[in-house]
Write a protein that binds this DNA or RNA. Structure first.
Length: 448
RNA sequence: GGAGGAGUGGCCGAGUGGUUUAAGGCGACGGUCUUGAAAACCGUUGUGCGGGAAACCGCACCGGGGGUUCGAAUCCCUCCUCCUCCGCCA
């Protein structure tokens, strides 16, 4: 049973969570969580019984104060005077006031305890799946396969920054002038190439019967939290604090949260959606890393695919392969050499059960660089989002969620430009993209 | 941005402080009757938490959160959402 965000299951096997926290290098105080939960239950039980008392005695007040009630009439017939009854009412009122005051004290504590409980629960990591390799960091990711041939040049190849400058299609200096470091401007055929890859990716997904969506990129706190980007990772998001909203780092967030707080019919599943969105990332903590060119930037566009499916391990594994295959199909269509890696536990996010990255060959880095990331989550996101469905036995269950990049640009322009460059400084447009560029075959340097 | 109105179960909708259980209807499901169906009649009807081996029991939930009160769907504050009118706008 995979649902490890259920407090009952955490209590049953706290060591599994502790183990997950170690493997994922995510701080999570499981012992404290269990302690707080003990107190939470204790309070709940006492509150329940106090409220039961109050519910029992309270309505009696209605009878004491209503001379027309049957009870009141019978009491008179039994020889009680209205003053006797008033006295009874007064005693009951005093007793209930005491009960109420105890309830209030407990409620105050309950609020504090619930707050800490909720805070701790949000730090609980999803245990990695058995097929995720155990490892410290990305160096221990396992290469599953390598596709496509790496081009060797018979001239001195330029990197994308230089190509972009010469072709006047990438203007990093002015991007930085406008918006600071890690910003850029795409111009002319650079912008067109960017549009082209995004349109190709969207078309390929629509062909595969994914529902195209246009979604908010500025979202509420609960949406960020529900998809697992908050509170851990909060520093990676741009906040619009005045409005208590955050800019998303991926369309995964609104697509996955789309049906949150709903109970879906099983025959609606799987939900397969795709969206193009702008992605905003602060890249906090990455200072000095990948500072060159279009690799690590604050803003980019991405086509993202999301699946919401039944609570079924095999099904989510199958869909994981499916969304991976879609991304590979796009890379093959553009004829880019890439490899697929099985991401190790130390490199998994808090909610991820397993993750495959696609890394594409980038000559200027003289290595493969991550261009896609396919994750499956079991119930992790669905629980946080309260995203459920009614199964054939009419039982309400949490969905499983998965997502993968289809394409992200301009990062993918790095290999496209660098691998398709010619000795004269022009760039050959990959065949499949030409129809999105008005049939253009080459991007040529402007004549002096 | 300004002014006003509204949010009740799967859906419609009654309910302005108390003889406890949110009336009634629709829908859905089960049953009786029927060759079968319809109609009619009878019954059932949500979620979460806790306790229990279970039957079951307790608690909470009338958009969310807080407050007043012995007692709140009902009164007050606040947030969210929707509607109407005005203004502005691609």
């Amino acid at each position: 049973m995979a649902a490890m965000l259920d407090i009952r299951q955490i209590r049953e096997d706290p060591d599994r969570i502790k183990d997950a926290a170690v493997k994922k290098k995510i701080p999570c105080d499981v012992d404290r969580l269990c302690e707080v939960d003990d107190r939470r239950r204790q309070i709940q039980q006492e509150l329940d019984s106090l409220r039961a008392r109050s519910n029992e005695a309270g309505p009696q007040m209605a009878l004491y104060t209503n001379p027309k009630s049957q009870w009141y009439q019978r009491a008179l017939a039994d020889g009680k005077t209205p003053d006797d009854i008033k006295q009874l009412a007064e005693e009951t009122r005093r007793t209930l006031a005491q009960v109420k005051s105890r309830i209030k004290t407990l409620e105050d504590e309950s609020r504090r305890v619930a707050e800490e409980f909720g805070r701790l629960m949000l730090t609980v990591p999803q245990p990695p799946g058995p097929n995720a390799p155990v490892g410290e960091d990305e160096a221990e990711n396992v290469v599953l396969r390598t596709e496509g041939d790496i081009r060797t040049f018979d001239f001195e190849p330029k990197d994308h920054v230089e190509l972009g400058r010469m072709l006047r299609i990438i203007d990093i200096e002015r991007g930085v002038k406008l918006a600071g470091t890690r910003n850029y401007i795409l111009r002319g055929d650079g912008a067109r190439l960017h549009y082209a890859v995004l349109r190709l990716a969207q078309d390929m997904m629509i062909e595969r019967a994914y529902t195209p969506m246009v979604v908010p990129v500025l979202v509420r706190e609960e949406v960020m939290c529900g998809t697992g980007y908050f509170p851990i990772g909060r520093d990676q998001a741009y906040l619009c604090e005045r409005d208590a909203m955050s800019l998303v780092g991926t369309a995964e967030v609104p697509l996955t949260a789309y049906r949150s707080d709903e109970v879906l019919a099983e025959d609606e599943l799987p939900l397969k959606t795709v969206a193009l969105s702008t992605c905003f990332r602060r890249e906090a903590g990455a200072a000095g890393k990948d500072t060159y060119g279009l690799y690590r930037i604050h803003l980019f566009d991405k086509v993202e695919q999301v699946i919401v499916c039944r609570n079924d391990e095999e099904e989510s594994i199958r869909f994981h392969q499916e969304i991976l295959a879609h991304a590979e199909a796009v890379m093959q269509a553009i004829e880019l050499p890439y490899r697929v890696v099985n991401v190790c536990t130390g490199d998994l996010g808090q909610g991820q059960v397993q993750k495959f990255d696609i890394e594409t060959w980038m000559p200027s880095r003289n290595s493969y660089g991550e261009t896609h990331s396919a994750s499956r989550f079991h119930e992790f996101q669905a629980r946080r989002l309260n995203l459920r469905y009614r199964d054939t036995n009419r039982k309400v269950r949490f969905c499983h969620t998965l997502n993968n990049t289809v394409i992200a640009s301009p990062r993918v322009l790095i290999p496209i430009l660098e691998l398709n460059q010619n000795a004269d400084g022009s760039v050959t447009v990959p065949q499949v993209l030409r129809k999105y560029m008005g049939g253009r075959e080459r991007i040529e340097p402007p004549r002096a």
